[in-house]
């Protein structure tokens, strides 16, 4: 009996050691991050998150980011007339199940980054970064539609 107790204590200690070793590993969602800028002018994930959306048909999720001008604008106005100098990024991820919560999905790999820059011209400029390393796509399709869709997103309103 005593022996059994000792063995089980040892096993417990081993489990604990193993557990501690694991807990020291810092888990970041690297796959969903922009680890190298490559052709991107900046890391959009470091800007202000304005809104979030999900496309269950494609199993994707997106966050709309913006610079300070964008943030100020959406907090004070309800229109889509962003001032010149506004930069928006729509980052789209493939969804993956949340390993820590059954019933939730979190961002998986980054599928694309779309950049919209408002300048003095009537039409804002649109750029699509896609694929491995998020290379800029020269011939992006449905550009106008995408711009419309992205800038029509409303701020996720909090009191």
């Amino acid at each position: 009996m005593k022996k059994l107790l000792m063995i089980s204590t040892h096993i417990l200690i081993l489990i604990n050691l193993f557990g501690c070793g694991q807990s020291n590993v810092n888990v970041l969602n690297e796959g969903a991050s922009v680890l190298a800028l490559n052709e991107l002018p900046e890391n959009p994930l470091l800007l202000h998150p304005l809104s979030s959306s999900i496309n269950p048909n494609n199993n994707t999720m997106a966050t709309l980011y913006g610079n300070d001008l964008a943030m100020d604008h959406v907090h004070a106005n309800n229109d889509y007339d962003y001032p010149a100098g506004t930069i928006l990024y729509e980052v789209i991820w493939k969804q993956k199940p949340d390993s820590l919560w059954f019933g939730g999905n979190i961002p998986g790999e980054v599928l694309s980054v779309e950049q919209i820059v408002f300048n003095d011209k009537i039409k804002p400029t649109y750029k699509l970064y896609k694929g491995n390393g998020l290379q800029v796509k020269q011939r992006a399709k449905d550009t106008l539609e995408r711009v419309k869709l992205i800038i029509s997103q409303r701020l996720a309103v909090s009191p």
Partner: peptide
């Protein structure tokens, strides 16, 4: 918190909510 950075988003289809974690 709305001026903080987002560190993740979650699609909680179990309870019909979506979250931004700042």
């Amino acid at each position: 918190y709305r001026n903080w950075k987002a560190i993740s988003t979650t699609d909680r289809f179990d309870n019909g909510t979506m979250r931004i974690i700042f």
